[in-house]
């Protein structure tokens, strides 16, 4: 096994666009699930809207890349409103059912051939990089050190991704340490009690749904920035991966989603490299190379179960929170 190569790949995944995208999506989900107690199972739908909004904005409407990004965020905000107004009066578990269905409806709309000229149906969208790359101030060349060697485009994507993530984390941190966040956490605990204190619970929940949804859509945009938009990405399992990253780090924390996504992707890369290498080296004689690739997703599922059972507050969560049975 080429351990140096595996180590290199793993370290590189720390600031990969996928890690940054997951961190943004998990941060949005932290607003929904960790702070507001909204069991949103459709986070993949919000990410898809960001990605498709961005790509369609450039390809169909000829917008500059930043305006297309805003279009993707606006689409997620509108989706949150449409989803929230009828469903936020429902109890938590019903919201989960509705959101998972809504995200699937979205995905199927993007997949259907009816809108092929706009969405590219099963092929997805690509070739929208012109204006984004033209705006790159970094001169051509390869920069970096050790495992972090990227060309100017790679760095431009990562820098923007990190800036977006930093801004989103700052916003969430500010919100949750304010009286507004106090009300939101109160709603998570018992919305009737908060209502009895004169707070408009519905409007808080709707705002939280929009804020979290927009942050998740930025995650979708970052995911789409370097390569292409593929409808096969925004499936229900993406939602569960983001949940794994979130719960790993700690649902009701600001930095938990970031740490969680980082660990998630580094582990994914390590396993994705080590398992096939182990098969090649004859350590896992009972499976093929392809089976080894699938094994890592099985391990993700097991990890999610173990976290929820033994450390539901996540790595960064307050240990005291675990002491109390709800």
């Amino acid at each position: 096994m080429d351990w140096l190569q595996i180590l290199n790949n793993s370290a590189s995944s720390i600031i990969s666009p996928a890690t940054l995208a997951y961190a943004l999506a998990a941060l949005g989900l932290a607003v929904h699930f960790g702070y507001a107690g909204l069991l949103n199972m459709g986070i993949a739908g919000f990410m898809a809207l960001g990605a498709y909004g961005y790509a369609i904005g450039i390809l169909t409407f000829d917008l500059p890349w930043w305006a297309a990004a805003l279009l993707g965020m606006a689409a997620a905000a509108v989706f949150a409103l449409i989803l929230g107004i009828p469903t936020l009066r429902l109890r938590g578990d019903y919201l989960a059912i509705v959101t998972i269905a809504a995200a699937e409806v979205l995905r199927l709309l993007f997949l259907t051939t009816t809108f092929d000229s706009v969405t590219g149906s099963a092929d997805g969208l690509s070739g929208y990089h012109g204006s984004f790359r033209a705006s790159n101030p970094i001169p051509e060349g390869t920069y970096g050190f050790g495992p972090f060697m990227y060309n100017e485009i790679g760095w431009w994507v990562r820098i923007l991704g990190i800036i977006a993530l930093a801004l989103a984390a700052l916003t969430v941190w500010r919100l949750m340490n304010s009286p507004w966040g106090r009300v939101l956490k109160g709603i998570r605990e018992d919305e009737d009690a908060v209502r009895a204190l004169g707070k408009n619970v519905f409007s808080y929940k709707l705002t939280a749904l929009v804020v979290g949804g927009v942050i998740a859509s930025v995650g979708g945009i970052v995911y789409a920035l370097p390569s292409a938009v593929n409808p096969g990405v925004y499936v229900t399992s993406l939602t569960f991966f983001v949940y794994t990253a979130l719960l790993l780090g700690g649902a009701a924390t600001v930095f938990g989603p970031l740490i969680g996504s980082l660990i998630f992707w580094v582990l994914q890369t390590v396993l994705g490299n080590v398992l096939p290498a182990a098969v090649d080296a004859g350590i896992l004689p009972f499976m093929s190379n392809i089976q080894a690739q699938t094994l890592r997703f099985i391990l993700v599922g097991i990890a999610l179960m173990l976290i929820v059972i033994f450390r539901p507050q996540g790595i960064l969560g307050n240990k005291k929170e675990l002491t109390f049975v709800k």
């Binding site: 956490k185 109160g186 908060v194």
Partner: peptide, 19 residues
């Protein structure tokens, strides 16, 4: 107030009050 007390469990006592 409610017959079944509604303290907001994972908020501190002070946060409960300020709410």
């Amino acid at each position: 107030t409610f017959q079944l007390t509604k303290a907001l469990g994972l908020l501190t006592v002070l946060e409960n009050m300020k709410l």
